[in-house]
Design a protein around this nucleic acid. Structure first.
Lengths: 197, 197, 197, 197
DNA sequence: AATGAATGAGGATTCATTCAT
DNA sequence: GATGAATGAATCCTCATTCAT
């Protein structure tokens, strides 16, 4: 007797292990969008839904909320590091990249509010770690006679200050305010745009 | 229809209507503490518990979350307004009062992140209203040749910037960073302290 | 941010996705019982408990109260529609089926209290929709010389009237009264029983 | 030393015991309105507010929800009793008064759904009592050859049936449907209006 | 490796009822 | 006698997290 050739209950294709990296990327990307729209407290289920995967996949890749946030911000930080590591790197250009990420991602902004000196007991460790990587990238390019070179903390205080200014409904609004902030600080900034290696 | 099935046990003392103002004050005070510890999204039940009152009392005095936040911040804003309205008011002195409140209250800081120009669709109306009151108070004292008088938005951008710098575990930490921020802006600030009419 | 603090204890068995249809059915069935016992305003938590599932399952299957009520009544309405669509359908027989459901389900009765003409602003839309389906089913079988064919509204007014008579502690009581009501209206009714296709 | 002549805390005038009957009447009247607008489950606090009295007064006059409902319906029932007791009382005229109250008060309608024969274990005793008073009033005027005189239960079943038909957004809608219901029953009804002794 | 259903704790909100003043 | 504040239980609803399939 010929049996069922198709499973009687339709199940979404299980694409096997090849799908894992794609799912991970989809989650990070979905998280970035959802965070932008609803803030860092958005329900994880919304992120899984937007990524088109089940809840379980999210937990497989990111054991907790922090892991996902880090993954999202990792890309922002990495771009800044790469911009700073470029052969012809100069502070203004890197600040332009930094500023672009500040205007792009509210989550990234909140990381920069809490540099090491400004952290408190409720600041998650991963935030500090990310913040320190940004600081390292920038400090390497800071000339001795730069206005932010006078005091040790000034550099990251200034970054935090710009983050404090970066609010508004659209990226363009936020960019305008970020540039105003740098101007008030008397710091030169290059073009505000992502780093393209 | 189905209500209290077992009113059985003794009710805690009802202290009568004399307690109302005391309860209200206790709620505002508890909210200030809880907000400082857990942020503006802290559960209302925690605030009621800390204040030593039932949930209902909280709702009686503050019909919604916003009303309570406003009540907490109202005092901060009012002090700035009064400082600005004093006979011998000068911008640096009022900025000192403002800065004191920024270092004192994380909730107040978050209000100043979103001035009118920098608001977005998710900014609650009451935050804007409070922010505008601060702006009005400061702008009246702003000399034409002040560094923040060049562009219309600069004043509140600067305030937001200082808010962005004000982080750290203790008030003293935060004050140090706030003063560094004003210094980087080249703006003179008076003593950081509450206004005492 | 502050979630499950103590997931400690053993979770009840998760029976996996196979249980979903069973759970849905259990919820509808539990709802039917609870509605009969406590009316349409019964707490949803009671229904979930009776069905032996968590609160969340109820919300997953029925996003709001209306969805659950509709699911419960859907079966009643559908039987009437099918009885009316049968090849040898005749009004008395369909009225018998209708009457059976009126005696069976208090919730169904309350739907028929509010036909379209008799609805008011507080009548939920889904009640109207269900009522209209009943009307459509009956009207198609209404002979021109039927006592309820004189005026457009008479048909559903009569149905509402029978609903008004259908009270009493047991189904048998209710059936006796329903039959008395049809007799007073001079309308012939077939056997009072569910439709069995 | 001259002391305060006015109490330092304004309190609403305590009008003493003369106000008690007025307050009671205001509560009944407020309850009638609120029940009409929001149904019998409306919050008691809303009734007290509408009546312009404190919550405590409501409890003083009506120890429980039922007492207030009874008080509201008492007036409806009493008018029917008085109409039936009038020298020249005739069934149609009394049915007109009954019908007027059915169109006027949703709460009254729900009482008539549950006459003695049709009651169940969840029917509150006071509902039965009111329903029985209506029945007594009507039955005394029922001629032996009246269409509702054939079976013992027919009278109150018919009244329940009319209640089942009485729905709609305005009193006029409800009156039209009530009259249609009586017509379908072949029962003559006098003018639909309150009894004015 | 993925899916998505189930669990159940947590937080918001409403109201009946009591009671000091 | 009246007032209206306080209490807290009950209900609604949302999500983080687990786990059978």
């Amino acid at each position: 007797m010929t049996q069922h050739l198709v499973p009687d209950e339709r199940r979404p294709a299980n694409e096997g292990r090849k799908a894992a990296p794609r799912n991970r990327a989809a989650l990070v990307s979905a998280a970035r969008e959802i965070y932008a729209e609803h803030g860092l407290d958005a329900p994880l289920s919304a992120i899984a839904r937007r990524a088109g995967v089940g809840q379980g996949v999210l937990y497989r890749h990111f054991p907790d909320r922090a892991a996902l946030v880090i993954a999202v911000l990792e890309e922002n930080v990495r771009q800044i590091e790469r911009a700073a590591a470029a052969d012809d790197a100069e502070l203004p250009r890197v600040l332009g990249v930094l500023t672009w990420h500040q205007t792009e991602s509210a989550a990234f902004v909140s990381v920069l509010h809490a540099d090491v000196a400004g952290s408190n007991s409720r600041t998650p460790a991963y935030v500090l770690a990310l913040s320190q990587r940004v600081e390292r990238a920038l400090r390497g390019l800071l000339p001795d006679d730069h206005p932010l070179a006078a005091e040790a903390d000034d550099l990251m205080i200034a970054v935090g200050m710009v983050s404090g200014a970066v609010t508004g409904p659209t990226r363009e609004h936020r960019e305008r305010r970020a540039l105003a902030a740098w101007r008030l600080l008397g710091v030169e900034v290059g073009p505000v745009r992502p780093f393209e290696g």
